[in-house]
Structure formats: C-alpha cells, structure tokens
Design a protein around this nucleic acid. Structure first.
Length: 1149
RNA sequence: GGGCUUGUAGCUCAGGUGGUUAGAGCGCUACACUGAUAAUGUAGAGGUCCGUGGUUCGAGUCCACGCAGGCCCA
C-alpha cells in the first residue's frame, strides 16, 4: 500500500471537512470514550453557552482550550466523558424577546400573558443552536451534543430545587434585603436596565450639607488626637446630597490610603472654635489661603474670637491652622456621637452599640465632599456592603406589625418614630404644594436644625444629576427591598481554604481576582424579579410565620394534595400525570397549606441564573433525585475552562455550591482564558464591523491552523489579538513545512515501495549519528510537550512541537539527510532514514493531535494506514484506526543523548559561521574548499566536533576541519578573557569594576599561567587577589591573518585557497546543478535516467568532466555523458563565465 | 474609584533565582542556495525594554509612585 501523495497547495479547509466526515462515519468521538471504558475518568465540565446569539471567533478560542485537554487525557488512556449543555435562562433572553415584540416589562401580564411570554423565551433561546452545533463540529470540539443538559427542562429545575432545599435545611437560605433603586411614586423596584433608559438621569438642585460628627474621647481617639490643648471638640466632616438620610447614619467611611488633616478652625454658624478632620486633597475646597497662614506662629496670632466674618466672599473659611495629619487607616475605629439621638426624640434601634464608628470603605474618593462618606446602610448599596463587612448595623425600626423597616416607608415618607420630622415626605412624592413662602423641604428642615445644633459645617445648594423613575418622573430612592440570600459568608473561610487547593491558570486569577473576591465575600443575592428563569421554590403564609421549601416535584404534588384537601386549591393540576412545567406562571398558581391551615403563597422571585450553571455538576445528572453513582463518579471536575469574565460568575457559583453542598472543590484545575480582540487590540463588535466570522476563518484556513495560531501565539489567559495574517503564517510555516516533510517521505518511500514495520527495524545502535540525534530530540520533545500539557500550558507545548518540526526535523534532519532518501538501492542506511523520519512524523502526529486534531489525524492515517492490518493483528500501539484512539508514546529516555544533542548544536553553529564566512569572501557553497580552522581550548570540544565533522563538511562543502590547540604548530592561538561577572560579583561586590578591568588587561602569559596552574595572583588597587579559572571565560576569537567569525566561545576560520582540483569540482557541481534544473524544467520524473551531450568548447569544463564524470553521472542519473563538437536542438547551460550548449534525452533503457 | 492583568524591534512574542554586547519569527533590504522550492541560508537596517524615582558594584528582571490598554466589580 502506497503513502498518499498530494498536490500543492494542500487545501486545509477541505482536509478538515474530509477528516470530519471520516470521524462521523466511523464514530471516532464515541469510540474515544467507549474505548476507555473501565479506565480512570478525567472529569470535564462544560460551561454551558447560551444559544440565543450566533457564536463568534472567541468561542473557537475558548472551546479549543477545552478540547485540547479532553483529547490529551484520552491519549493518556483516561476516559473523558464530555456532556454538553445549554444555558437557557436569564435577562438577555428576556430583553431580546421584549425587543422583538416591541414591549417592556410593564406589558408582561397586560399586553402579553406570562405564559406566552415565557413560551417566546423558550423558543428564542435555542434559535442559534444549529449554528452552534455546526461550529462545534467544524472546529473539531469534541463534546456530546446528543444528550446535553438544558437548564430549562423540568428535571434540571427540579434538581436546582432539591439543591436549594438542601441549603435551606442547612439554614443557608434566608430572606433579607438589598439596596436597590426604588420608585416610591410607582411603588416598585427598578432594574438597572430600567435605570439606563434615556432621560432617567436629570439635573436637580438639592440642599446639601457637610455634616460634622463629634468624636467621642476614648483610648482610641486620645491616642491619635490628643494634642497640647487637651480634650477638645473634634469633628469628622462628611458631605451628603441627601440630608434626609442623615438620621439613618450609623457609620463613617474613610479610604485607608487617603491622607487626612486635623484642622483647627471656627464653625461659621455657631462661631465656636473647633477641630475638624477632612481629606488633604479637599482642604482647598473649604479653607482660604491668607497671609496669616504664612506665619509660623499663626495659631497664636490668629484672632479666634473676632467678630469679623470667618468666611471670605468665596465662602471659604479664613481662620484655620493645620494641627495634624494621618491616613485613613489611622482613623478606622474612632467612635463619634449620633447626630439625631433618642434624647431628641429619635428612636433607639437594635445593635446601636456597634454603630457610629469610622470604617474603611474602598469606594471612598477625594473627588468631592470631604473624603469621608456618611454611611446609611438602608439607603445606599455601597453603604450597605461596607457596613456589612465592618459589622455596622442598619438603623431599622418596627412598623405597626412589628416588622423592622427603614426610617422611610414604602410611600416615601418618614415613619412615625422620627420625632419632629415624623410623616414628612423625603421628596415630593404626593405632589403637594411647594410654593408657600414658609414651605420647607425635609432636607431644608433638617439642615436648619443642624445649623442650630452645631452639627452643620457648611450648607450649600448643589446641582447634580440624579436618577428618576422613567414612569413617574419622580426621584428614585435607593431603598432596602426584600431578597433571598444564600449565606455564603457562613462558609467563607472554607471557600478560601479550598480555593488554595485549586490549580488556577493563570495563578493570579485564583489568588488575586478570585481570592480577593472571596476575602470580601458578601451573601449571594439569589432573587431576581423576572419571569424567565428557575422559580424560587418557597411558599409562605401571609403573616410570614410559616414557610416551606419544596425540594422535588413529588413533594410539590403531595403538598398540593394537602392543599386540595384543605380546600385551598380546587384540584391538583399535576394529578393526572400531566406534563409538569415548573416555570412561571404555573407555579404561581399553586397555593399550599401550612401546618396550621393557613394558605401559603410562592415567593414571587426567580433565582439568579448563575445558580443554574453553578448547579450543573449535580443537575446534569438529575442528582440528587437520582443517579447518585453518576454524580459521584463525575465530581469534582478535573478540569474546566472559561473566560476570565466568569471568575465571579460560573467559577464562583461552582465553587460556592461545591463547598456548601459537598464540602469540596468543584474543580481541580481551571484555565481562565482571556479575550479575543481584533488585530489592533480593539474589542470585536458587530457594530464596529471588526468581528471575525468563525465559519469563514475555518473554511479559509482550516480548523487546525486556526486552533494552532490561537494556542501558539499567546497563552490562553492573555488576550489574543486575532490577526488573520498570523493564521496564514502558522499555516505556511508550521503546517506547510510539516506537509512538505510528509510529502518528501511519501515520495521516496513510494519510489522504493517501502513500508515501515513496527517489528523489523534497524537497531538503534546501528543508526547514524544524525538519526540518533533527531530521535534524541524527539524523545526530549515528548518529555517537554507532555510536561507542558500536564501543567495545562498548551502554548509552550505547541511552541515546542513547532520548533521541533520546522527547525530540527525539517531544516536540519531532512535537509542533511536528503540524499540518503533518494540515492541508490534500499540499503540499511536508507531504511534507517525512512524509519527515523517515519517515527518522528508519527510521534508528531500524536503530540499535535490535541491541538490540531484534523491534521494530526491526517498525518497519522497517511503514515500508518499501510501498517494497520498487521498492527491490528498483533494489537500493537498503531492498531487504532485514529490517532485520537492511540495511547501517547512515553519518552524513551534511554535514547536521549545530551552529548549528542550538544555536538549537533555545535555542528549547527559552526556551519552557520562557515556560511557567514563564505558570504564575506563571496564564495558560493557549491565551490568546495579545503578546510576550516576551529580553535579548541579543550579536548572534549575537539572530540565533540570531531564526531560531527562529516556532517559539517557536507553541509558547508569543505574537505575537512582542522583543529587548532596549544599543541598544534599550525598557528598561534590568540586568547582573550572575559570576566565572569556573576561569580566575581558575589566574591568581590563593590570592587567588581576594578577586578573586571584588571582581568581585561591580562597578558597572554597570565592567561597561560592561570590555565596551567589553576590560579593566578594579581593586584587590584594595591590589594592582592587570586583568580580561579572559573572567574574568567577564556576564548579565542582571533586568528592573525585569517578571516574569522565568532559566536560566543566558538570561532571559525575558512581557508579560501582554491586549487585546480577544487575549481574543477566546483565546476562539476555547477554542471550538476544546471543539469538538475534542466531535468526538472523538462518535466522529467525523479527516477528517469538520462543521456547528456555537451558541446566540447571549454577546456576547463572538459577537464572538470574528465575528473568528476562519475560524480556528475551519479548525481544526475545520467547513463551517458559525452562531448560533441556540435550540439543542436538542445538548450544552453549558463553559469559563471560559461555558456554551454547541451542536449538532454531520456534514456529508454 | 477598587481588584486583577498587560506594556520588550514596524507586527506577534521569548527573555528560571539581578551579571555588563536584550533575542526569535514575520515584514523590509541585499546577496546566495535550489530534485522539500509558495522552502532555505547569510548579512543588514530596525530598541529611551511605558515613565520617574529607589535598592545594588550591576536592573528588561527587585521595590515604590505614576502613565497607557484590557477585564471584572462599584
């Protein structure tokens, strides 16, 4: 059976399609899993994509990363089940449907029923599934698409419910509140999407106040603030544009790295002397620079009690002295007095003993205000979060039913406990008349009181933008709204601890982005006020005293039966085996009965879609309701990979659920890959028109070059600048070279009708130096590539494979071995060459196959199909029909020969130097030369180079290498020394410069002495030191009278003397070259024999042919090479100064 | 604003634990080579290693502060 031969250029797109068809026909993917039955499992989790949009080139990137390791682990013999999945819930789908229908959330339940709306979502979410499946196949991503998990299916939702119930039973599910945009006028919360509607942000003019909070004197504040003037009135300044939130203040936040000042000044409303604290950067906003302040004793000269104005025309304070400065971190922990306390008729509240402290807030800036932020946990999201982290309570008061709530009710007015302000509207939500002369807004009333109390530092009208409800045009409040939470903070330490056992690529995402996120963890807000998603399975009585969390469809049915019995429901909608849909609105129509007989209503929220995807390790098997064994076998994952943007998304929810449910990591290794940008580093977008179409790319370049480029160009976790020119380069340089190498092999193997066998091979010991070298390099490559892939670094593996193929295998081994392949009969040496190249190509096919699965398959099949029958019969490593079913070769380390690799590198470098010298001397490689000279300083280099002398000579066309050493008489070795700074630096430190200079002045005699005696005493700056041989590097980079080239310690000189014989041989070579060209131009086959007649016109040429006729005939496969006086009907060979008519004919026998 | 990340030749990227003259590929220029040939070799041009300070005998590498791009969060 012959090796397939191909015409240039290879169509890589077609190759991909052909291999794909073959895979399908032979069920290779299925076999790659089934053939590993009973072997250890390598667990991979597919992060489910959403099919509501077309896939992009970045998906090719992400899925290549995933695919590589599934295939690699299969090659290692593991079984790698790869269950696909689809993410189907969520806001993007709702928005898409609303856009298509031309409706808003308001219209749901009015213009369109929830039922129809959700039906629409369900239809929309899989709209691009066909395209996704197509891409999956074409790019060669092996994942099981026949039995994927789908998050909207009842079984999947049921699993989510079961998991939620587990958490509920552990006490990890609770109802609390979050701060959300809320419209009191409309009585509804607003989504961030609604807030982003045009026109919602308006300029408004508000009364703002810099409030001053009085520091309480205790250990902490004394340590920081106690000055030479005793205990004084020290105030912390904080600015707010919403004075109505000040009665709800329970903390003050500073930036821990911000610089703050303690300033002595006067209150402009009370005229009391006082000390205030504010950020240094904002000092100029409140204080005026005057001449007074330039005096060193300004405190003493300042007339603190003067009746003169204390502010200038710009409103800046003129009487001040800076007393101290410190950072925010110094201030944390200081306590202060409450502004609106019980003594003035304002309410006590739970936890107030922990309130009124300075805390750290990472959101604090010095852009405006005072660099200190007033915290009211009930009216700001930042405030809420910072307060939670610092254990600052919120100011909550009970309503008529005893339920705790903020100081503002849901209609937007102060609750009755608010003393003199009780019942006041915080903004004008009821449309009351504001035009009366005495009318005061609540903000104004509060500020007036503060001025009187001496707690206002500065009051100003201030214009700023503020969000408004798009329906009522009234200002939005940030307000606490009910939410369900998972108490992730309860397992925070465990989350952190187990995260440290996860192998993150890159590591910094695990320790940094993810680690920091865990350190600052708050509870997971599960609630979403939406329609298309997994409903929260909790039913409650109206008085909230009784509730039930449903964990299965069976349980739900049983509870409905109870409700029917209690006549709360008329019938059980699921009783007759009807299809159960757990989505809204169906679950909303189910009412249950509490143990005390009260009706229970479902909590209307849906859960965060991230719960859906984080639950996939369990829900994909319908666990915990069934398939315990399946689940156990596939938990946790050995490997997952997604974009780095999933860090706080999927990576977190997987981890959180894994820790809470199983007290385990959910994945052991994870690659967080970066973005795919366009070639200029811009984000790809359809709008900008710079998005790359994955289908067109794969068709044009083939899937392999696309994948290889993405992996080899940059590590997956760096952003990739996708440049099609780069794919072209990979295609040409790597795949083109590899294809050429294969074609070369196939061409000559077929000519010799040679077929390698796994059994009958030339023994390793009998292989040539070059064969053993490339096989040594191959083993080193196996070690290296496996190491990188084991370490989840595909980029380094790809680069190593690429380097081996292009530089070592093609450009050195094949180039130097060419004639062994085409010359003469099938000798042992020729067989050795075939077998060596065959082994390299087969191993390369295996190693590359995870990254370039199609080409790897193509190469493997082309190389081994001819041996398959025998391999199958004897069940050898090459028995599998597909490279993806083979077991990856282990490196045969016994064949790694470091000395051999070292001397071949010497050969490569010496050849390069010789080429360089030829170039300088204008001597083409075809002109043979007598010798090169190589100075050697030690015996081992001489020996090493000597072993590869033949290779070097052949490569650079010289007769032999002459070594120059101390003993040789041929020339004077001129040695020079270079200081070894690394060694010397450690030894001499600051004296290094002088020592180095002294070394460079060493005489030949000194060098010789150092070499012979092993040490040399010299003087540096009058001090004696002793040099060891290791302190310097001795080299010979000059040969007097010779043209030399050097590369590090290597030096080469070329003898350019030309003898007549050398000239003749050069001519013979020229002639061979021209005849070969002529053969090729005449369209002759490689194996054709020829007869050549040359015009007998040039004596030199005639002499050359006479001397080298055999050589010429052998090289050109000429049976006859004769001269004639006249040559007609042929062509003319031109070279050097010659012009020779020639006649060439194919020899028929 | 915070966290993480990137910044080295025109482009894409390498540059363990600091060592003096910073590399590769592509692209460009010139020359050579030629039965693997859309390949290859040699040489050349091309660098404030993002900036500023610091540590050190010595910094692309370590530290601090910035600048610019990216992602996530707010």
């Amino acid at each position: 059976m012959k090796y397939p031969e191909y015409k240039q250029p290879l169509n890589y797109g077609q190759l991909g399609e052909d291999i794909l068809a073959w895979w399908k026909e032979h069920g290779i993917f299925e076999k790659s899993v089934s053939s590993r039955e009973g072997q250890p499992t390598f667990v991979f989790y597919e992060g489910p994509p959403s099919a509501n949009g077309a896939p992009g080139i970045h998906h090719v990137m992400a899925r290549t990363v995933k695919d590589i390791f599934g295939r690699y682990q299969t090659l290692l013999g593991k079984q790698v089940p790869r269950k696909g999945g689809w993410d189907t819930h969520g806001l993007p789908i709702e928005l898409q449907v609303e856009k298509e229908l031309g409706i808003t959330k308001e219209d749901i339940g009015k213009k369109i029923s929830v039922e129809d709306y959700n039906q629409r979502c369900k239809e929309t979410v899989m709209r691009f599934k066909a395209q996704w499946d197509d891409l999956t196949e074409k790019m060669g991503y092996w994942v099981d698409l026949n039995d994927p998990y789908v998050t909207f299916e009842p079984e999947y939702i049921e699993s989510c419910w079961a998991l939620l119930k587990k958490l509920y039973d552990k006490g990890l599910l609770y109802k609390g509140y979050t701060i959300q945009p809320y419209s009191p006028a409309a009585g509804t919360g607003l989504s961030s999407h609604e807030l982003n509607q045009p026109g919602t942000y308006k300029d408004v003019k508000d009364t703002t106040v810099v409030a001053q909070f009085k520091v309480i004197w205790d250990e902490k504040s004394k340590a920081l603030l106690d000055g030479p003037y005793g205990e004084q009135n020290v105030y912390i300044l904080a600015w707010t544009t919403t004075p109505w939130t000040l009665p709800a203040n329970t903390g003050l936040a500073v930036g821990k790295n911000i610089k703050y000042l303690l300033v002595r000044t006067v209150n402009q409303y009370t005229r009391e002397e006082q000390l205030v604290i504010l950020a240094e950067n904002l000092f100029g906003k409140y204080f005026a620079e005057t001449e007074e302040h330039n005096r060193s004793n300004s405190y003493l000269t300042m007339n603190w009690a003067s009746d003169e104005p204390v502010v200038n025309k710009k409103g800046l304070l003129t009487r001040w002295v800076i007393n101290e400065e410190f950072t925010g971190a110094d201030l944390v922990g200081i306590k202060y007095e409450r502004l609106f306390g019980p003594e003035e008729g304002f309410p006590h509240f739970e936890g107030e003993e922990r309130a009124f402290r300075v805390i750290n807030g990472d959101f604090v800036t010095t852009e405006d205000g005072t660099g200190i932020v007033h915290i009211s946990p009930t009216f700001g999201a930042d405030d809420f979060r910072a307060a939670q982290l610092a254990d600052i309570p919120a100011l909550m008061v009970p309503d008529a039913e005893g339920t705790l709530g903020p100081i503002v009710d849901r209609t937007g007015r102060y609750v009755p406990q608010m003393g003199e302000f009780a019942g006041r509207w915080v903004k004008n939500y009821d449309g009351h008349d504001e035009t009366g002369a005495d009318y005061k807004t609540l903000d104004e009333s509060i500020v007036i009181k503060m001025k009187g109390d001496g707690t206002a530092f500065k009051v100003e009208k201030y214009e700023h933008t503020y969000p408004h409800c798009w329906r009522t045009d009234k200002p939005v409040l940030y307000y606490p709204l009910d939410s369900w939470f998972i108490k992730t903070t309860a397992v925070k330490d465990r989350l952190i601890e187990l995260n440290k056992t996860i192998n993150w690529k890159p590591e910094s995402t695990g320790t940094g982005r993810f680690g920091n996120w865990l350190e600052n963890l708050v509870d997971w807000n599960l609630s979403r006020s939406r329609y298309w998603g997994t409903p929260l399975p909790i039913w409650r009585t109206q008085d909230r005293t009784e509730e039930i969390c449903i964990g299965s469809i069976a349980e739900l049915k049983a509870e409905i039966d109870k409700a029917v019995a209690a006549e709360i429901m008329t019938h059980n909608p699921y009783a007759n085996g009807e299809k159960v849909d757990l989505h809204r609105p169906y679950v909303d129509d189910i009412f249950l009965v509490s143990p005390t007989g009260q009706p229970m209503y479902r909590e209307p929220d849906l859960i965060d879609v991230w719960f859906d995807s984080g639950a996939m390790p369990y829900a994909q098997w319908h666990y915990p309701l069934e398939n315990e064994g399946q689940f156990q076998k596939n938990f946790p994952a050995d490997f997952i990979a997604e974009g780095v943007d999933q860090t706080r998304g999927w990576f977190f929810t997987l981890h959180a659920l894994g820790v809470m449910l199983e007290d385990s990591v959910a994945f052991k290794n994870v690659i967080a890959n970066g973005l795919v940008l366009d070639k200029n580093g811009n984000k790809m977008s359809k709008r900008l028109g710079n998005a790359v179409d994955p289908f067109a790319t794969i068709k044009q370049f083939g899937p392999d070059a696309t994948r290889w480029y993405m992996i080899a160009n940059a590590p997956p976790w760096d952003n990739l600048k996708f440049d099609p020119a780069g794919v072209t380069e990979v295609q040409r340089r790597f795949f083109g070279t590899l294809f050429n190498t294969y074609s070369f092999y196939a061409l000559y193997a077929n000519l010799d009708e040679f077929q390698t066998s796994e059994f009958d091979r030339v023994p390793h010991a009998e292989l040539s130096e070059l064969d053993r070298w490339v096989l040594s390099k191959l083993q080193s490559l196996i070690v290296e590539a496996r190491g990188h892939l084991d370490n989840y670094d595909p980029t380094k593996a790809a680069r190593a494979i690429q380097d081996f193929v292009t530089d070592q295998l093609s450009n050195w081994y094949v180039r130097l071995s060419r004639r062994r392949f085409w010359k003469g009969e099938l000798t042992q040496d020729k067989r050795a060459a075939f077998e060596t190249l065959q082994e390299c190509l087969v191993v390369v096919a295996q190693l590359m196959s995870p990254i370039a699965p199609f080409f790897g398959e193509w190469l493997y099949k082309n190389m081994t199909d001819g041996m398959r029958a025998e391999a199958e019969a004897k069940n050898t490593p090459l028995a599998p029909e597909s490279v993806h079913l083979t077991l990856l070769v282990e490196a045969d380390t016994a064949r790694i020969d470091p000395k051999l690799e070292e001397r071949m590198e010497l050969a490569q470098r010496i050849s390069s130097l010789a080429h360089s010298l030829r170039k300088k001397s204008v001597l083409k490689v075809r002109q043979p030369l007598q010798r090169i000279l190589v100075p050697v300083l030690n015996e081992s280099t001489k020996e090493q180079v000597g072993l590869v002398e033949d290779l070097i000579c052949a490569e650079i066309n010289v007769k032999h290498i002459e070594f120059l050493d101390d003993e040789s008489e041929s020339g004077v070795l001129v040695k020079s020394v270079k200081p070894n700074f690394k060694r010397l630096g450690q030894q001499y430190g600051p004296r290094l410069k002088a020592v180095g200079a002294r070394i460079q002045q060493m005489t030949a005699a000194e060098i010789s002495k150092l070499e012979k005696e092993g040490s040399l005493a010299v003087e540096v700056d009058g001090q004696p030191i002793t040099l060891a041989p290791d302190d310097v590097e001795i080299r010979t980079d000059d040969l007097p009278g010779w043209l030399v080239a050097t590369d590090g310690p290597l030096t080469v000189a070329l003898d350019v003397t030309l003898t007549d014989e050398l000239r003749q041989e050069g001519l013979a070579r020229e002639l061979v070259n021209r005849l070969q060209n002529l053969r090729k131009d005449s369209g002759l086959e490689v194996q054709d024999k020829i007869r050549v007649t040359l015009a007998d016109q040039q004596p030199e040429l005639t002499a050359a042919v006479a001397a080298f006729g055999d050589y010429i005939r052998t090289e050109t496969q000429a049976l006859a090479l004769t001269f004639a006086a006249d040559v007609n009907g042929g062509s003319v060979l031109e070279f050097d100064d010659y012009s020779v008519p020639v006649f060439l004919e194919v020899a028929t026998s």
